[in-house]
Nucleic acid binder design. Structure first.
Lengths: 215, 215
DNA sequence: ACCTGAACACCGTTCAAGT
DNA sequence: ACCTGAACACCGTTCAAGT
């Protein structure tokens, strides 16, 4: 009794569910088919192959970002909000995040955030090559932050995080790491993200000012 | 005629070779064993499982970074050099880069770069939580940049890069992207990296100055 | 047009057997 | 201590057959 007909959308949704529930390694065509109560090969009527399915997952997760843009706000605030919206991925789809940042997307889902960012930066007075550079810098920072948050890039908890300072770091070889091990062992992701974001925005404001001065 | 005895090092090296030659998807225990001219199960005498092997790959690639630290140089220059050294991963081991940034490492190989960064930042006057924050921001930026460079995060070449401006981006839906498509389609990775790096360093200098002022 | 089972060429890993 | 082949429980995907 298939309540709904199979479709690309349903397949992608099932994949996302499965990833969030059991991790990216659990995803297989056979597993997803089982989840949907159909034969494996039925999937291939709606999706060319596994790779395309995973692209679909990435696109869908990306398209679920809720952008709230206030055109009246100053550009700095708008940039902040866009960056934060992006970061929501790590919260709403933590185990799919790696997939989102590790797949080259060419769909509208991937283009929309860039479109918004470029528009905002234009308002800030950046055009052409400068605007593109700014977007790329922000994307790099955000992507790197998401990876840390999602637990793939180390937070630099040395050895095992649990046993603070009882960790096996040689204080002679790594004096700094070992003296800061307590701080390295904890990470307030939100605070870290905001810190870097503010620094970046301040830097961009200064950059705009410098350019203004030499024009 | 096994010229050399099997060892964890030889296995990891073979894996790196294979990844760089045929991509990360080509890596399998069976394939690596074949590459080394041994039975699959022989690998398990030196490596507990595939996951551990891939961690070994990440650690080894990371440990191959050539840091050249000039203690006499100003801290800004030392930070620059460390960031650039890290970026070399993308050039020396492009197809292993994803593995390096996507695995939580707890070995000395992963700690050394952090140790150096913390020492340099201490010299710049940052200690404790500030130093940790700075390192994390730099790592986020560098990791994100590497992913772009290595071709996983989009450079934002809309549709297919090759046909510049003949790409299928709707100029009504995406006016900014479509008007900047030419710039978005090309990416001088070195220049982009340096641009963000300078901005970051400038921002940190300003941050240090601000803090100094209010002390 | 959509679904499907059988089959093929792969996986990682356990186990028992060898030296 | 190190190596190994057989076996098990999985993969993605092709193909031919069904409706």
């Amino acid at each position: 009794m298939p309540s709904e007909p199979l479709s690309r959308g349903r397949i992608v949704a099932a994949a996302i569910d499965l990833i969030e529930r059991e991790g990216a390694d659990a995803v297989s065509m056979r597993r997803i088919a089982a989840e949907l109560g159909v034969g494996v090969m039925s999937l291939y009527n709606h999706v060319p192959n596994k790779d395309a399915l995973l692209n679909g997952v990435a696109e869908t997760v990306l398209s679920r970002i809720e952008f709230t843009d206030d055109p009246g706000a100053p550009w700095t605030e708008r940039v902040r909000e866009q960056a934060r919206a992006f970061r929501q991925i790590a919260h709403h789809h933590p185990r799919s995040t790696m997939l989102v940042v590790s797949r080259q997307l060419h769909s509208a889902a991937g283009l929309l955030p860039v479109e918004r960012a470029l528009a905002t930066l234009r308002e800030a007075g950046f055009e052409g090559a400068d605007a593109v550079r700014m977007v790329r810098m922000f994307v790099a920072y955000i992507v790197g932050s998401l990876l840390r948050e999602v637990g793939v890039t180390p937070t630099f908890a040395p050895a095992q995080t649990r046993t603070i300072n009882a960790d096996g770091v040689d204080p002679v070889l790594f004096p700094e790491v070992s003296s800061l091990s307590e701080l390295l062992g904890e990470c307030d992701h939100e605070a870290e993200f905001e810190f870097g974001l503010e620094l970046l925005i301040t830097a961009i404001e200064a950059y705009a000012g410098r350019r203004e001065g030499t024009r």
